[in-house]
Amino acid sequence: MSPETRGYTVLIVEDEDTLRQACSDVLDAFGYRVLLAANGEEAVQVVRAQGEQIDCVLLDLTMPGMNGAAAYAQMRKIKPDLRVLVTSGHDVEDALRHFPKGSAFEYIQKPYSIYELHRRLQELLTSPASSNEA
């Protein structure tokens, strides 16, 4: 367990069951509290119900139904200061095209290592709230 991550809650939004569970297991081992959502609609419901407890969202961009960009917009309406780490197999320029200009989030491209994920989450969670822009 990492002292820098103990107590932080991360919502993992990923439509691939195996990847969602693997991320959950890894983040749990690093000391994060983990919430799960299989799609954008579930993510919005979780943020609506537990938003005050969520410190960060690991958000897949490409999902059936409500995609990551649409879920991001809805979650930020509920919790405007929500920190988001968007993930996708697309490069960052392609991912940015899905979001309105000025959207505040960080980006990590799939595939990523567990250590890279942990490092990026640590940076996002410990940075000033206004500086987390892509």
Rank of each mutant, 00 (worst) to 15 (best):
F99P: 11
Q122V: 08
V13M: 03
S103M: 12
S103E: 08
M75F: 01
L58A: 06
A22T: 13
I54N: 05
A69R: 00
L19T: 15
G31L: 03
E133S: 15
D81C: 00
G65E: 13
E16K: 07
M75C: 06
T87Y: 01
R48W: 11
A49Q: 14
T5S: 08
P128L: 09
E16V: 12
L27Q: 05
N39W: 07
L121W: 00
S127C: 06
L61D: 12
M1Y: 13
S131K: 09
A129N: 06
L85R: 03
G65P: 14
S88F: 03
I54T: 08
E93I: 03
L59E: 09
F30H: 03
A95M: 09
Q50S: 15
D15T: 04
Q53E: 14
T126A: 04
Y112D: 08
S113N: 07
L11I: 13
V57K: 02
C56A: 15
R83W: 00
Q122T: 09
A69D: 07
E93W: 02
A49T: 10
I108H: 09
Y8V: 05
Y32K: 01
N67W: 12
L85D: 03
S131N: 08
L85C: 04
L61G: 12
E4N: 09
P80Q: 00
G51Q: 09
Q74W: 00
K77W: 00
T18W: 12
E116K: 12
N67A: 14
K110T: 14
E133V: 15
Y72V: 06
A70G: 11
A22C: 05
T9L: 07
C23A: 13
D94K: 10
E41P: 08
A104R: 10
L19H: 10
A49G: 15
L35R: 07
A37Y: 03
G7R: 02
T5H: 02
L36S: 13
K79G: 02
Y8L: 08
G51R: 05
E52A: 15
L85M: 04
H98S: 12
E133G: 13
V47T: 08
R33F: 08
